[in-house]
Structure formats: C-alpha cells, structure tokens
Amino acid sequence: MVQQRKKGGIAAMKGRLLQYGIIGAVVASVAVYGCSSKDSPATPAPIEDPSLADINFRVPQGWDAPVYNFSGNPLTVNGFKLGRKLFFETRLSSDNLISCGSCHQPFAAFSQFGHDVSHGVDEKVGVRNSPALFNLNWHTSFFWDGGVIHMELQPAAPITNPDEMNETLQGVLTKLQGDATYRQLFKEAFGDEQVTTERVFKSISQFMGLMVSANSRYDKYKRNEAGGTLSAEELDGLSVFQAKCASCHKEPLFSDFTFRNNGLALKPNKKGLIDSGRGHITPFEATSLYRFKVPSLRNLKFTPPYMHDGRFETIDQVLDHYTSGIQQTPNLDPLLASGSIALSATERNALKAFLNTLNDEEFVKDPRFQEPR
C-alpha cells in the first residue's frame, strides 16, 4: 500500500484537486468509492489473451522496494484487463473521444509524442507536457507539481480537468454501468457488476502499476545479462552522467522525484501565465515557486519534446540549456548556482551515447500494454 503522508502531503493533494476544480466531485464520490472497500478479486476467468499469462509484479534486481506494492489492491488478470480497457476508453471524457491513452501513447513510452502540451476534448490544449508513464510504483507523487500523492487518486485529475477529459466522476460511472460488457468485466474483476470510482481507480492502477521499464541495455549491463554490452564511449558517458547529472537523476530510476528549479527562462504558458510549478500546490511557501518534479531520463528516444512545457525538441537543446542557457530565476537549484554544467564536446557525445542505453524497446512493444482490439 502507498506509504501514508502527514499534513503536508494532504495539503498538497488538496491543492491539486482544487487546481482541477474536482474537490467537490471527489468528496461527493466518497460514498461510492468506499462502498466496496472490502472487495476481493473474483474467481479468475480463463486467459484468452496469451500476453496476459504473466501478470505479476516483480521488483527489478538492485531496485529499492516500491512505494505502491498492490498490498491493498491485489493484482489479478481480470483487474489488469479491466484497467487496460479503461485506460484506452474514450468514454471517460465528455466528448467520448479522449482516453488516458490519447495523451499517454504506448509507442511513446506513454507520453504524447510530438506535442509540447497535452491535447484534450474539443481541441483544447493544456499547459504542461504529458509525462511518460512507467515505473510509477516508485513515485512518491504524481504530475509535474506533485499535487496527487496516491496512485489510485491520480486518474481523477485528468478525467475532470476541463482542458483534458472534462468529465465528471458520476458521468463516468453512469456510462460504464450502462454498458453490459463493462458490467461483466467488473463482475469478473470484483465479484459483482457494481461500478464504483474505487473499482475504476484500482483497476487502472493495476494496469499502470505493472508498467515497469527495466529492460534497457543499461539494465542488462547492470545485471550482467546477454544484450547488456556497453561500448567504451557509452561507459565514458556513464562516468560523465554519474559526475554531472546523477545528483538529481538518481540511478536506477534516473530521478530522485524531488522538485527543483533547473533554470528555465520564465515565459508565459498557453494560458498566458507563468507556471509556478510546485508553487501552485503550496502557494504560501515561497521556496516552492518554479520547481517541478525531476523527470526520469529513461526512454528519452520515445518521449520528445522535453521539460514541463515541452519547450525543447531535442536532447541537444536540453544539453545546450544546461551548458549555456541556465537563468538565475528565483529558487534556482543550488547545484546550478554557477550557471552552467561544463561539458566538453567529447563528454557531450559520450553522455548522449549513454542516454541512448536507457531506451527500453521491450517496454514500448510489450503486448500487455497495447490498446486492446
């Protein structure tokens, strides 16, 4: 089960819910959410999809224990299958055209390839880049500002965001309860046909929680497995990374999940406002302004553009920022106080070569995570 947080975490979660205007919707759904809190998985159904033969969560060798471990949400084939279908279900949106998978595409490591910010219903656009989704069980918070601290609450935000899916939680339940196929899927997963927000969120969390990316060439190198050979340049790049990047992008997840200001120039977003980042969640803490969650450096090949607002299209642009583009903005991370990270041309090429070893082709092609047909 996700580790419990004290008052600060609760305030952060409330801040995120207020941002999306859904605190009332979540409170209104508590009775529905809680009515099945003692659900136990139903009798397993025969596995018709061969890709679902292995629905097990394993902590990769050398990784720390996850924050979310399914102890309160037993992982089952039927629960995962339901969650996968819901993840790609367009009826979770008000116009019945946008799904979670619209902004989190499997081939893009569950980011939205080529879009600087999220695209939602009625051709609306958000203000932040759709973050890649993998290794979520190790995250201590969600979204660029960390406004939600529990994976099972995370789906409420995009579903109710007016620029994303723009639906109500009750609207989702009504649509699903009225569908005989879904009623059967809920029965197979939870024992009866009742559709509740708790069951919706738990099943989606089973799908997202199983999305572990740990089979890159770097991972195989660390485990001394076949296919894990790194070239001399890539090994040099690993050394450069460990010397100049690892303070924030900690191995093996390649993020420490903290909030930092990396010196991006402050510029208006799609709404004409300067994004305050973490400051949106804790507005009375001046030190939180312009800080965003450190993203993982895994799967960069699949996830351009980069940064919280997708302002950089290439890795070279990202490196240009760190070598010569850091701005002395309020709350700039102390590690960047000098204004640059020095990289010679040789170091830069080696670092880029190493970053390419973090791409997990097996993950993006895993049949378990593709949209069901």
Rank of each mutant, 00 (worst) to 15 (best):
A25V: 08
G15A: 14
S102F: 11
K81W: 03
A45H: 00
G62A: 02
C103P: 09
E48Y: 00
A31C: 08
P66V: 02
F80Y: 07
G62D: 00
C35R: 12
S94E: 03
F88Y: 11
Y33A: 11
N69W: 05
R16C: 13
W63Q: 10
T90Q: 11
G101T: 03
I55E: 02
V59T: 12
C100D: 09
V59F: 05
Y33G: 11
Q19I: 06
Y33R: 14
A45P: 00
C103A: 06
I47P: 02
N78Q: 08
V26L: 09
V26K: 09
I98P: 06
R16V: 10
N69C: 05
V32A: 11
P46G: 01
C100R: 10
Y33S: 11
T90H: 07
N73V: 03
S99E: 06
R16Y: 10
A53S: 06
A28F: 15
R16L: 15
L92M: 15
F70V: 05
D64P: 11
P66K: 00
S94Q: 06
F88S: 04
D49V: 00
N73G: 08
G24N: 10
D39Q: 13
A65S: 13
A12L: 12
L75C: 05
H104C: 07
G83S: 03
K81F: 03
E48V: 00
I55M: 05
P41S: 10
V30D: 13
F110Q: 04
S40E: 12
G101W: 08
V26E: 12
P44F: 01
K81H: 04
F87S: 09
L97R: 09
G21M: 06
C100W: 13
A109G: 02
P60W: 04
P50F: 00
N78K: 03
C35E: 15
L92D: 09
R84L: 00
F57M: 04
L92H: 06
L18H: 14
P66G: 07
F88Q: 07
A25S: 15
A42Y: 03
K38P: 14
T43I: 05
I47Q: 01
A42F: 04
K81P: 00
M13E: 12
C35W: 10
Q105F: 06
K85A: 15
M13V: 09
D49Q: 07
A108S: 09
G83D: 01
L17S: 10
F88N: 05
G21W: 07
L17F: 07
F80P: 03
F87H: 09
L92G: 12
K38D: 12
A53Y: 02
V67E: 10
L75P: 05
R58S: 04
R84N: 04
A53P: 02
